[in-house]
Amino acid sequence: MGGYLVTLATLISIQAIAACGLNVIVGYAGQISLGHAAFFGIGAYAAALLGTQAGFSFWTALPLAVALTAGVGLLLGAPSLRVREDFLAITTIGINFIVEAVFNNVEFFGGALGIGNIPRIRAFGGPVGGAGMLALCLGFLGLVVAACAGLVRCWAGLACFALREEETAAAGIGISPVRFKLLAFVIGSAMAGLGGALYAHYMRFIGAGDFAFPLSVSMLTMVVVGGIGTLWGPVLGAALIGLLPEVFRPLIDYRMLFYTTLLLLMIRFQPGGLLGDEGLARRLLRKAIPGGRR
């Protein structure tokens, strides 16, 4: 596999990790978020600062960066999740812009220059190179998907589903809407933080612009296209959204137009996503594997 493909696959798996986190918030708990890139950025900046300023290794910085992102998710989610639907969408967009502005303007975060010289990840006594990094990211992606699969099967996940379907009825069977929305938000933020930390150490240079609002839109596109609320949807979506611009190189200037059109077409013709109940991919899979559900 050529270096170019390895790079592409690595970036896709990193984005898939963050998209899985967004799927927990939007797909499982039904809470729209248009600010997921902010949490991806918080994980990245935390890992970058811990690596460059504090001299922490990736392995020490990672749990801290994830915990920090989850903590900020808790802090920002607590007031935001009290509003619903379109108001929540606007609030999360606001979070994205504020976080980006903080990164861009506060000296501590490197300001407009961003943070450079982020150390490579080291493992087994040496730096982790291209293929090794891909393996590492795929490994973490595997863990995240496994965590999502586990969440779906535990009471916390079922409570989130109930909340997504009917908030008043969920409260009627003892589910605290605020608490479980917040739980989903924190778990989703932690996953975004994990992706962000990997991103920082992979890119070795980050700037505020990497985590701007368009990335949030593209992450939401991944989730919607792949199959909102499904286990593998965000991974499929991240792969498609990551690959398509490479396949159609000239489209890169029109990326936002492309995403928006794709999003609208999906909502119109495949509202459940490709892996959703009536999705194209699900139908093809059903044909290929008769009797198979997942």
Binding site: A159, G174, S176, F180
Partner: peptide, 9 residues
């Protein structure tokens, strides 16, 4: 889902 009522708290 309703049977989780003892746990959700």
């Amino acid at each position: 889902a309703s049977q989780g009522i003892e746990r959700y708290g």
